[in-house]
Structures are given as C-alpha cells and as structure tokens.
C-alpha cells in the first residue's frame, strides 16, 4: 500500500497527459478570445468610421515585410510538425536539429515582426487604423516572443535528455506552436483587409 505522502505528487501518466492537454487548450482558447476581441474591435471601428477619421489618410502598411515574417513563421510551424512526427515515429527521440531549426525560425520571425512593427511609419497621434495595425503588429510580436521562450525551455529539456519520458510535452507544446502560427497568420491577413 502506498503511503500517502510519497504518493502525493506522483501523478499517473494518463492524468499528466490529460491535464497538459486541458491546460494548454484552455490557454489557447483564452488567448484566441483576446485576438478575436482585437479583430472585432478593428472591424467595429472601421465600420463606424467616426468623423470619417478612421484611416485619416494613412496608407496601408508595406506588404512584403509582413509577408516575409509570416512565411518564416509558417516554416517554423512546418519544422515543428516534422519534428513532432519524428518524435512519434521514433518513440520519443526526434531529430533535435529539426526542433532547433523550428525554434530558430520562430526567433527569426520574431525579429522580422519587430522590424515590421518598428517600420510602421505612422505619425503620432495615430488614427484608428494605424492604432489597430500597431496593436496587431506588437501583439503578434509578443506571441512570437512567448513562442521563443517556450521553445527555449523545450530545448533545455531536449539537451538534458528529459523529453523522452514525457512525450506528451511535444504534443501540447505543438498545440501552442501551431496556434501561434495560426494566430499570426490571421492577424496578418486581417491587417491586409482592414
């Protein structure tokens, strides 16, 4: 019979997996709702066009820098997917190089996004349109920063060899990774049509 004290924090594997999935999915839902709130706000202000000043004569942002950042981000997601498939096939030991590639691409996307945000040449005080674009740009950058930090932590686990016994980490971090890619893509698309 297990005494209680020792049993306390040894949680059964299927519970570990369940809680990881539930936790990450809920965080994704919460974050997605904030993104939706921002997008809805943009649509609303655009429709209202208070005093005709929503755009205030500001032009749309340059197309290619944002496109570049998004492409790098999508590539990062694809690399993660490749790595995750490798992990599942080899039962816990994917090719770490591919993960490092995915992580590096995330960091490059972050740098690119910061460059995009800084390069938005709008004059302060910003009209509604420029305000929305700035918010989207920096919120995207923030997500990419979070992704980079999470990637760093996972890298630490890989390098210490502590990933193999917790395969579900690959899966749930994957959820967040793909979400970051999807959210970035959606925010970029929105900035094109706003």
């Amino acid at each position: 019979m297990n005494t209680a004290l020792e049993q306390m924090h040894e949680i059964e594997p299927h519970i570990q997996i369940g809680r990881a999935r539930a936790g990450v999915l809920m965080l994704i839902v919460s974050d997605a709702l904030s993104v939706i709130a921002i997008l809805a706000a943009g649509g609303y202000l655009s429709a209202l066009n208070v005093l005709g000043q929503f755009k205030g004569g500001d032009p749309a942002p340059a197309f290619f820098p944002g496109l570049l950042a998004v492409i790098v981000l999508v590539l990062s997601g694809l690399a993660y997917y490749m790595w995750e498939r490798g992990v599942r096939k080899n039962g816990g030991a994917g090719q770490r190089v591919i993960f490092i590639l995915s992580w590096a691409l995330m960091i490059i996307a972050l740098a690119a996004q910061i460059w995009v945000s800084v390069a938005l040449k709008y004059a302060s005080p910003f009209h509604g349109y420029a305000s929305m674009l700035l918010l989207l740009a920096w919120y995207s950058a923030f997500h990419l920063l979070l992704g980079a930090i999470i990637g760093l932590l996972v890298l630490g686990r890989i390098l210490n060899g502590r990933l193999a016994e917790r395969g579900y980490i690959v899966e749930v971090v994957g959820y967040w990774w793909y979400y970051t890619v999807a959210a970035g893509l959606i925010m970029w698309l929105f900035s094109l049509v706003a």
């Binding site: 208070v50 005093l51 205030g56 005080p125 009209h127 509604g128 420029a130």
Partner: peptide
C-alpha cells in the same frame, strides 16, 4: 503611445 482607439477625433469610439 497616443493611439486613438477611443478618441473620436482620430476615428476611435
């Protein structure tokens, strides 16, 4: 940062 999400004269509401 002087954005105008809520400033009417710059298109906010």
């Amino acid at each position: 940062f002087h954005t105008s999400f809520f400033i009417a004269s710059y298109g906010g509401s």
